[in-house]
């Protein structure tokens, strides 16, 4: 026998911790960790409600399994978006100002390949962490037509 107010209290606590994690982080991946905590609070509440005597249709555990599946799909798409953001801007800081400079840069990209290259060079020079920002661009320039050669280069630099 177990008193169900204990898991209910833990669920409320996890949801509060998740809300703090979403609001207090600048790194986009760490914001996703807060979202995962909120989802787990919902899961624990579903399991708790489902283990009450007389809960119909096994709704608690079944809906928990569904929420776990949806969380897997959600984090896949979210991490793809975060990786694209890192590839374009060189950082995943959600409060960064240089997002404003991407607008004119994209407008300048429409003029042609030459202005595109200079615009990108200015862009990487403007961002604070030049090393982090230049490397993905360099990989894109060197290895963009050859996906097979681009992947080992990226992996090797990630390890180093």
């Amino acid at each position: 026998m177990i008193h169900l107010s204990l898991p209910a209290a833990l669920s409320a606590l996890l949801a509060g911790i998740g809300v703090y994690g979403v609001l207090a982080r600048r790194n986009a991946v760490l914001v996703l960790i807060g979202v995962e905590l909120i989802l787990n609070a919902a899961n624990l509440l579903l399991v708790t409600a489902g283990s009450r005597p007389g809960a119909p249709l096994s709704a608690g555990p079944v809906l928990t399994l569904f929420v776990i599946t949806i969380a897997a799909a959600e984090i896949t798409v979210a991490l793809a978006i975060i990786l694209v953001m890192f590839r374009r801007t060189g950082h995943i800081d959600l409060t960064a100002v240089p997002d404003l400079t991407d607008g004119p840069d994209d407008a300048g990209d429409g003029y042609g390949a030459d202005t595109d290259d200079t615009g990108d060079a200015d862009d990487t020079g403007d961002t604070g962490d030049a090393d982090d920002a230049e490397d993905p661009r360099a990989e894109d320039r060197d290895g963009h037509p050859h996906d097979a050669t681009r992947e080992p280069a990226a992996a090797g630099e990630g390890v180093a």
């Binding site: 509060g16 809300v19 207090a24 509440l45």
Partner: peptide, 17 residues
Amino acid sequence: GALLGAATTALLASLLL
């Protein structure tokens, strides 16, 4: 964020407990 998190916990606990 800490205040909002504590408020969320208090709200959910006052409802669920």
